[in-house]
Amino acid sequence: MTPVTAARGLDTSQAALAEAPLPPADPEELQPALLASTAARIADRAEAMGLTQWFWGEGVVLQGMLRLAEATGTPARPFVAAFVDRHLREGVGLDHVNHLAPGAACADLYGMTQQEHYADGCRRLLHWLRHAPEVTRAPGGALEHWPGGVWADTAFMAGTFLIHCGLHTGRPELVAEAGEQILAHAGVLQHPGTGLYAHGSHEGRTIWCFWGRANAWTALAAVEYLEAAGAGADPDMGDRMRETSDRIRALLRRQLLALADHQPAHGVWDVLVDGQPENRGILETSGTAGIAAAMFRAAALGIEPERLRAAAWRALAGLHPYVAEDGTLTRTSAGTVLQLVPFGYSVIRNDTIQPWGQGLALHAYAAALTDRARHRP
C-alpha cells in the first residue's frame, strides 16, 4: 500500500495548549492492595455509567471486569452476566464488526457456566460474521471496519471474540482465524520502518498516524492470541499454529520495543505515540492503559521481560494519577474516527468518561496485579 503523506504545514496550536502531565506515582507504592482498590473504583464507576448498548465500549468493559476477577481470584461481577443475559434475551442487533466485542464475554460466561444460551449467543455472532453482507474484507483478508478501510480496532473487537469463542466452545480453528486476522491487519497497518501501528487505511491507502489506542488494540489482540496458543488451544494444527505464533510474537516484540523507545519519562504516551509535533504533549490515557496491559502480558510470555516490565510499570505509574476519586479514568479521548492528517487527533475531546477508558484501565490494573503476584519477593 502507498503511505499517505501528511500536509507540509504543521499546526501546533493545540499542542501548545496541552496541560502539563501530572507527576507520576511511585511504582513501589503501587502494591496489590492499592491496585485492587483502585481497580474496584474503576469498575464501580463503569457500572454506574448506565451502559445499555451491545457495542464495542461495553465489550471492552466486560472483558476488563473479567480480567480483574481473574487477577484477584474473585467471582466475576454480577454486572457481566446480567448485561449479557439481558441482551441475549431481548435480541442483539448486529450491523458492524464492533458488535462482536461483547461476544468475548459471552464466550467466557459459557466457559464458566456451560449454560447453553451463552453458546447459542456465540453461534449467532459467528453466523452473522460469516454471512452478513455488511461484513467486508480487504484484498489481504483483513476484516474491514468500513468498506475500503481496515482499522486497528477490529483486530481486538473481532479477534478477542474469535479467540475466546474458540477456547470455550472447543473450536481451535476460530483461534487460528484470529491469528490470521492479526497478521492481515499487521500487513496493512504496521509500519515497516518503525514497527508502530497506524490507526487505519482509507480507500486502500494506509494513513500513517500512529494512534495510541490503535497500538493498544493490536498489542492486546496479539497477547490474547499468544496466550491462547500457549494454552494449547489448537493442538491439531501443529506447524500452522507455531508458524503463526512465531510471526505474531516477532511483530509484537518489534511494536512494544518501539513503544518503549517512544515512551515519555512520565509514562503516559501522547494521543499519537511517535512525538508528532501537532500532538506532542496531548496525553491520552486509554491507549496508555492498553499498552501497559499488553506489555505486562508480553513480558509474562518471555518477550523482553526486563525492558517491557519496566516500561509497563512506568506507564501504570503515570496513569495512576489520572484515576479520579470516583473511579473515572480522566484524559480518555472520545470515540475517534480515522483522521486523514495528524492534526485531526489533536482536537478530539478528552473531557468526559468513556467506557473504553474504564475497560482498558481494568485491563491495565488486572495485568499489574498479576505481575505483582508473579514477582513476589
Rank of each mutant, 00 (worst) to 15 (best):
T2P: 12
R8I: 06
G9D: 11
A16E: 13
L17G: 01
L22P: 03
P32L: 10
A36E: 15
T38G: 12
A39P: 15
A43P: 11
M49W: 03
T52C: 08
G57K: 03
V61Q: 09
G64L: 07
L68A: 04
G73S: 03
R77M: 02
V80K: 01
A82E: 15
D85L: 04
V92N: 06
G93M: 13
P102R: 01
G103N: 06
G111L: 03
Q114L: 08
L125I: 05
L126R: 09
P133N: 09
T136P: 04
A138V: 07
A142F: 02
P147W: 13
G148L: 06
G149C: 07
A152R: 08
F156K: 01
A158H: 00
A158N: 05
P172M: 06
G179N: 00
A186C: 15
G193T: 04
T194Y: 01
A198Q: 02
H199N: 06
S201V: 04
H202T: 00
I207D: 00
W208Y: 12
W208T: 09
C209Y: 04
A214P: 00
A216L: 09
A216D: 02
E227A: 13
A228D: 14
G230M: 08
G230N: 10
A231E: 15
G232R: 11
A233T: 05
R242T: 14
T244S: 13
Q263H: 10
G267C: 11
V268R: 06
D270C: 15
M295D: 07
A300Q: 11
A300M: 12
E304M: 04
E304Y: 13
E304G: 03
P305W: 03
A317M: 13
L319P: 02
V323A: 12
G327L: 05
L329F: 02
T330D: 12
R331P: 02
T332H: 13
T336M: 07
Y345H: 12
Y345V: 07
I348Q: 14
I348W: 14
I353T: 09
P355S: 13
G357C: 11
A364N: 11
P377D: 08
